[in-house]
Nucleic acid binder design. Structure first.
Length: 497
RNA sequence: AGCGGGGUGGAGCAGUCUGGAGUGCUCACCGGGCCCAUAACCCGGAGGUCGCGUGGUUCAAAUCCCGCCCCCGCUACCA
């Protein structure tokens, strides 16, 4: 039984403030991290920002800032987001951090060079003279740079270093096929295997300093800087201390959580680098989808980009966490709409959970609770009443969903139990009977639900734990709630609108 | 073009892999109950030929196979 759990998110490019898609990623990672914390594992959760590259350099120039000032400013916004969303990351890595990141990135280069996997070659790319930088296929619109549509894109060449990724093509393919490197959901594994069926090609690994003046210098070549792969991907190691030996405490990563567009780099280039360097591969790559906004693709040009920082001013972190998780099926795209967020906040968090806690805590304050066997939870959560088996229970289903990373399903299963609690209080009418045992069953059931909900909505769970007096840990599920003086809970979720 | 995803009561979604009465969720609508609670909660009801073929397999298809139509995404350098 492994007792450590290392999870990472991708590190977003610090060229712009965070958008809602990244919020989805850190929330999902946080839920998995907290689920493991709940199980008493030694968790390390890493996120951060990718801060080099021409785009940052150019944008800084436009804003009359030094590149460092510019990325400092944006990186701070990502840090703010982790706080606004109550993210439990253990460290926040920045690729411009010369103490924490640079030595490891340079060391990675050095090792790959030593293996003979880095060589010089002519690189040819699409270049916009307006931006003074290479631009990617993806950025092009009608074969023009969107920012300088009047200019023609040039094909220009420079000499730089390449990484011999092709050498590891077969090995990587085999590792993925045999699930030594697991890609989930499986459709993304198949997607990637289809993509590389003709093999992986070598990748450009550095840039001439003329075209990329903002980056980590290549060891022993002043005219070149590391290109994004060796720089950014290495964060997963430097974030836990590499090249200092202490990184071995958490490496290999248990999970790299990535957006679907990032899969190819994490399943191709990154494993190639690790194989070359003789380091262990991550165990799993979990792929999440994108968010559409009101059913439409999010893009700057249509102006429907949602800022999670703005959203967090209006809604609690738990509402946002709950909504995004509930609305996004594992590995698929989800849709964001503020109307739906508000509805779920009102109907599910306020009416179902909040109101239940409110009425039970009020009654418990008035009439008290008396310890008894909690048949409500026993029947509907802990074990399957009919077969008397734990395997068929709702709790085992929830655990199964977690194991499969189906967070949306785990969440709806927990809420199905809360529905049963609401039915129960309605049917037994403890406000009439003043039955302390019924109230105990309800309070103890709320305890169980709250513990299971902690990874999703930690702030609320902790509030509930205070009201009923229990500890948040998975082992507490089996311990009956201790009797304490219960006071009416504050309103957990105020209705919106 | 290729690859991938989708078309389920008025809206938005699960369910399809592992076939079994159209089951479920969040709303909208109609009727009732409750009065502890955040005008919350509970019960009941109306509403769908599960894109099309009136296709195939099967005792049985939303689910598997075939054909067709429509929507959307991706096609390698950063969610």
């Amino acid at each position: 039984m492994e007792d450590k759990f290392y999870i990472t998110t991708t590190i977003p490019y610090a060229n712009a403030p965070p958008h809602i898609g990244f919020a989805l990623e850190i929330i999902q990672a946080d839920i998995l991290a907290r689920w493991n914390t709940l199980h008493k594992k030694k968790v390390f959760f890493l996120t951060g920002t990718d801060e080099h590259g021409t785009k940052n350099y150019q944008t800084a120039k436009k804003q009359k800032l030094t590149p460092q000032e510019f990325v400092d400013k944006n990186s701070e916004l990502f840090k703010e987001l982790t706080k606004a969303l109550n993210i439990s990351n253990n460290y926040f890595i920045r690729t411009t951090d010369k103490k924490r990141h640079w030595p490891g990135a340079i060391e990675m280069w050095r090792i790959l060079k030593e293996r003979g996997d880095i060589y010089k070659k002519k690189y040819s790319g699409k270049y916009c003279s307006g931006c003074e930088r290479f631009i990617t296929e993806k950025e092009l619109e009608d074969n023009k740079c969107p920012e300088h549509p009047s200019l023609n894109i040039q094909q220009i060449e420079e000499e730089n270093y390449f990484f011999r990724l092709s050498k590891y093509s077969d090995k990587i393919k085999k590792l993925i096929e045999t699930n030594k490197l697991e890609i989930l959901p499986e459709k993304w594994k198949n997607d990637f295997l289809g993509l590389i069926k003709n093999g992986l090609t070598d990748v450009s690994f550095s840039r001439d300093i003329k075209h990329l003046p903002w980056g980590i210098p290549v060891p022993e070549d002043k005219n070149q800087v590391l290109y994004v792969w060796c720089d950014a991907l290495t964060n997963y190691l430097t974030g836990i201390g590499f090249p200092n030996k202490k990184y071995e405490k958490f490496w290999p990563a248990d999970i790299h959580l990535v957006g679907k567009d990032m899969l190819r780099f994490h399943a191709g280039i990154w494993p190639g680098m690790l194989l070359s360097a003789g380091l262990q591969l991550p165990k799993k790559i979990i792929v999440h989808g994108f968010l559409t906004i009101d059913g439409k693709k999010m893009s700057k040009s249509t102006g429907n980009v949602i800022s999670p920082l703005e959203l967090a001013k209006k809604y609690s972190s738990d509402s946002i966490r709950y909504y995004l998780t509930r609305t996004t099926p594992f590995g698929d795209d989800g849709d964001f709409s503020e109307k739906a967020l508000m509805e779920r906040h009102n109907n599910e968090l306020a009416n179902k959970l909040g109101n239940l806690v409110s009425r039970v805590s009020t009654l418990a304050e008035k009439y008290g609770i008396e310890k008894c066997e909690n048949e409500l939870a026993l029947k509907n959560l802990i074990s399957d009443w009919k077969s008397k088996k734990i395997e068929n229970s709702r709790l085992s289903t929830i655990k199964e969903h977690f194991k499969n990373y189906e967070l949306d399903r785990a969440l709806s299963e927990i809420f199905a139990f809360l529905d049963i609690c609401n039915e129960y209080i309605q049917k037994t009418q403890p406000w009439k009977s003043k039955d302390k045992k019924i109230l105990y069953e309800l309070a103890d059931s709320i305890k169980s639900a709250s513990i299971l909900l902690w990874p999703f909505i930690p702030e609320t769970s902790e509030k509930i734990a205070n009201v009923f007096g229990f500890k948040i840990s998975i082992s507490e599920l089996n311990n009956p709630l201790k009797i304490s003086k219960i006071k009416k809970s504050e309103i957990l979720f105020n209705k919106i609108k």
